[in-house]
Design a protein around this nucleic acid. Structure first.
Lengths: 344, 344
DNA sequence: TTGCTTTACGAAAACGTGGTAGTGTTGAAA
DNA sequence: TTTCAACACTACCACGTTTTCGTAAAGCAA
């Protein structure tokens, strides 16, 4: 068991100075060829690799980025991570992942843990609790320290930073419009409680689509669900009354639950009930029938977010301490409707 | 934009030495109360937090662990990460995640990137390509450097280290036995190509269950699939011949595909065809019918792996350079059958 | 020989921290 | 008066790098 070798050890072994070793390995012209080659051979033999931590301390750059997300066992979020990881890797960065578990305290704790030098910047999506509380001091603090932050999906206007989002409102609009186009008149919206910003935006798009098409906007057709497990009763009640002939669900879990409920009641999807879901996940692809979805393209979001962050990080290098120009941008990732069996 | 404050800055500002500041903050008795409180107040005001990188360099401990997995957009792996994250957080560790994308080169690259001081230990699951090549030098090298490694799920006997696995063979046995118990006689096995160690073990369990029950072991009923998308033809051919009345699939993607194919052909699940899948994922829970699965309990695996790794890391602290006792253990996580609608 | 330039290397600082080992002052006991 | 301990604090080192600056030796022209 040999510990990793250091410059100092090489220096001692070869009876030269540390600087000589360092320079030799970086192919400095200052060092005579004989010494240089000797050092390089020795280093290669002992598989010398510079210590990242020491480099980080010296360069004040860790070459790693922190990701803070509400959940990780979640199709959308894991695709985003995947997207981030791809570009991070390409640029030589590693990613440190923390899960807030939708808890404000954990989010704060995680950020503090990473903000003390461990990373060069954050990519994050707000926890539900944070959105509910509206308390973002932990984020502003990090930004004030000069650490770049990119937010995605669950963002807030209260923070000035780069953002990557999809146009939730127009995506919802498009989905509802397609239902209307296929002749549906009574379209229900199954959504979450609305303090989560995206839930609100999707509701707005839904409403606008209805009104633009001269359809009534009926509050009773908006079903707000807090817990997936208990929603079946509500759904079946409404289905029983034949209150609607189409559903726009804000996530695929709701959608598949609705389909199952409808099937149990003998209703056919899509004939009796058309269903569209937000978030194109694995469930939609494999459910029976397969579900038409609004693709959110998490991978693209991740790619974009990582690129934006790394650009900021590397731009700061020149900027140094002079006030850098704070022209933050909000990138909107396009969505598109993936037609499957749950609509006609 | 104020950069994070350091001991040195505080020292300069208060006109004391760096040591005094450091000691004051650590409540050393060497420092007089007046000075101590003054320093603490100042530090609190400027929200001083020790720099993690500097600490890592000094202590030769990064308090972070590296995870290397083949995929992240994958139910099982993401549950494992979740499990690791929980324990890591509890012990004050962060997790750095790298995705090998089932590529040997990426796995090696990622390990090298992290092995140079960035982390205190690895938790990993082998990439397919690595298993295929049987080349594990990158792992032995890391271990030889004294860095603890815990492998999970896709492991190899060629490496001596702590491992967390499930008993694939007996789990498969149990699943097949339950099919036999409900009267099935012709049970097909749908599996992957067998260089992936777990695929092989599951096949063994399948075979043993058949033989133990006096059923013939028929090679034709083992369907090896390399690409999910092209498997439908094979499946439907066999189904058409009524060659089997039950299926044990090594993952839920295969299972759901089989069910869909059967449905298309007018076969009923479970009446005409019973289906059990390995890996209890999200698809099984929401497919129609829901699928009976062998639960793999990724979270528990993650928990266990993280605990084992952290124990190793913190044990080494005392051990120092003396040869530590290499009694590696392999933890076997229990599985259980989750009965759902796809079996009777 | 003197003075100047190369060549080839080394010393030291810096990044931020924490521990060990001083150091100087004060007051009290011998 | 001397000695010694207690107090309150500082110097210094180490962790592993990179980089700037310095300098000894050698070479060469005048």
């Amino acid at each position: 068991m040999k510990r990793k070798i250091t410059l100092k050890q090489i220096a001692k072994e070869l009876d030269v100075s540390i600087s000589t070793v360092s320079k030799s390995l970086r192919n400095s012209l200052e060092i005579g060829e004989e010494t240089r080659l000797k050092v390089q051979a020795f280093a290669k033999f002992y598989n010398y690799k510079p210590n990242n931590i020491a480099l980080s301390l010296k360069n004040r750059k860790t070459k790693s980025i922190g990701i803070i997300i509400p959940e990780i066992v979640h199709y959308f979020f894991s695709t985003v991570i995947n997207g981030i990881e791809q570009v991070a890797n390409e640029y030589g960065y590693s990613v440190v992942i923390c899960v807030s578990d939708d808890s404000f305290d954990k989010e704060v704790l995680n950020m503090e843990m990473l903000a003390n030098g461990s990373i060069d910047g954050f990519i994050m999506s707000l926890s539900k609790e944070t959105q509910y509380k509206g308390d973002f001091h932990h984020i502003t603090e990090v930004i004030n320290q000069g650490m770049p932050v990119v937010m995605f999906d669950r963002v807030t206007n209260d923070i000035l930073c780069d953002k990557v989002i999809i146009d939730d409102k127009s995506a919802a609009y498009e989905a509802v419009q397609s239902l209307i186009d296929s002749g549906r008149k009574k379209i229900a919206l199954v959504t979450t409680v609305d303090y989560v910003s995206v839930g609100k935006l999707r509701t707005d798009g839904y409403e606008k689509a209805l009104l633009d098409n001269g359809l009534p906007f009926n509050e009773d057709l908006i079903i707000k669900i807090e817990d997936v497990d208990t929603c079946e009763i509500t759904i079946s009640q409404l289905l029983h009354d034949r209150a609607f002939d189409a559903v726009f669900a804000v996530n695929e879990l709701f959608a598949v639950t609705i389909i199952k409920t409808a099937n149990k009641m003998g209703l056919k999807v899509p004939e009796d009930l058309a269903v569209i879901a937000f978030t194109d996940g694995i469930i939609s692809k494999y459910s029976t029938p397969t579900i038409t979805t609004v693709s959110q393209s998490g991978e693209k979001m991740g790619n974009k977010a990582a690129k934006m962050l790394i650009e900021r990080i590397e731009a700061e290098e020149d900027d140094d301490d002079e006030e850098h120009n704070e022209n933050y941008i909000t990138e909107v990732i396009e969505t598109h409707l993936i037609k499957r069996e749950s609509t006609d």
